[in-house]
């Protein structure tokens, strides 16, 4: 795919809205439901995911094309990516703690939480199956994660409001959160007709 402003724009719209990570592809649902009670934690999680996903798109693309393809071991990509991503997150955590303590404390607990996040792995694999080049992989990783941030932020805003509502007892807590997520997902279905 040729890199131009238009193609990057299409990629961004696709990744953020049309193929939204949580609301359309249903990836990364556990942080989506788990850390969306407050908007600031949701944004913290979103930023941590953006950071890691951009970085892991880059690393996994290199691992795939420089190690697995020459060795004809493409079928090992899932397990290899899990290994690489887990190590990458761990590495980033130790490095940040030393080099950028402020960023480390801002991302805080969310960073290690992403180690086993299916969304990060999912995007790494999507980058391969869609045959993206290196730059597109990185961009795709970043935009998908921004889509995730958008979704989790909207969801957290709605949940903060729901806190103040008179919810029937059987629906209090998690059930209403799931219903909200479903309705949000419906809303994002509206984008699925968009074609470029």
């Amino acid at each position: 795919m040729e890199i131009s402003l238009a193609s990057v724009f299409v990629l961004a719209i696709n990744a953020v809205l049309v193929e939204n990570l949580c609301l359309v592809k249903f990836l990364g649902i556990c942080p989506f439901l788990g850390v969306s009670k407050k908007t600031d934690t949701a944004i913290g999680m979103g930023l941590a995911v953006t950071f890691i996903m951009t970085l892991s798109s880059f690393i996994t693309w290199l691992v795939y094309h420089l190690i697995l393809v020459p060795a004809k071991l493409e079928y090992l990509r899932t397990i290899a990516f899990i290994l690489v991503i887990a190590a990458l997150v761990q590495f980033v955590e130790t490095a940040l703690k030393k080099l950028v303590p402020s960023l480390y404390s801002a991302l805080g607990i969310y960073l290690p939480l992403i180690t086993t996040n299916c969304a990060v792995l999912g995007i790494a694999i999507t980058n391969i199956t869609e045959n993206y080049g290196l730059v597109f992989s990185i961009l795709n990783g970043m935009f998908c994660a921004l889509g995730f941030t958008l979704a989790i932020w909207i969801f957290a805003c709605v949940r903060e409001r729901i806190e103040h509502c008179d919810i029937p007892k059987p629906f209090q807590g998690f059930p209403i959160a799931l219903i909200t997520a479903a309705l949000l997902s419906f809303a994002f279905m509206g984008f699925s007709g968009m074609e470029f």
């Binding site: 691992v63 190690i67 697995l68 060795a71 071991l73 090992l76 397990i79 290899a80 290994l83 690489v84 190590a87 761990q90 590495f91 130790t94 490095a95």
Partner: peptide, 16 residues
């Protein structure tokens, strides 16, 4: 191959 990647990453983490 996987073992090599794992070892390499492990060493890198230990070093880090």
């Amino acid at each position: 191959c996987l073992a090599a990647i794992g070892l390499l990453l492990g060493a890198a983490l230990g070093f880090a």
